[in-house]
């Protein structure tokens, strides 16, 4: 079993984390604390946050997460797909329990 088994699959509703870790991270501010849906998995890679600190980092899933512009900026009719490590994501319990 890999160190980091995949926690999410395409179609899963997710919420991005709100916390802003010290140092380098690859979750853009505009996509923090936002609700989106996994569209596909973009391979398995060491976490950029850990590599930037010179730490060893096991590969874990990275996902393409689709957000409605309205859920990011309160307006707009477009979509934004951001590529996010699983560490930045939590299940969106509210929507997945429906």
């Amino acid at each position: 079993m890999p160190d980091h088994p995949d926690r999410f699959a395409p179609g899963d509703p997710v919420r991005t984390r709100i916390t802003d870790p010290p140092g380098h991270t690859r979750l853009p501010r505009y996509a923090r604390g936002a609700r989106g849906v996994i569209v596909s998995t973009a391979g398995h890679h060491p976490l950029a946050d850990e590599r930037a600190r010179g730490l060893p980092s096991a590969p874990r899933a990275v996902h393409h997460v689709r957000f409605a512009a309205r859920d990011l900026f309160g307006e707009g009719d477009h979509a934004v797909v951001v590529e996010l490590w699983e560490d930045y994501l939590e299940p969106d319990e509210e929507r997945s329990s429906r």
Binding site: H24, T25, R29, Y30
Partner: peptide, 10 residues
């Protein structure tokens, strides 16, 4: 951390 490079949406 939100640093100056993180300009998306500004």
């Amino acid at each position: 951390m939100s640093r100056i490079n993180d300009v998306g949406g500004m």
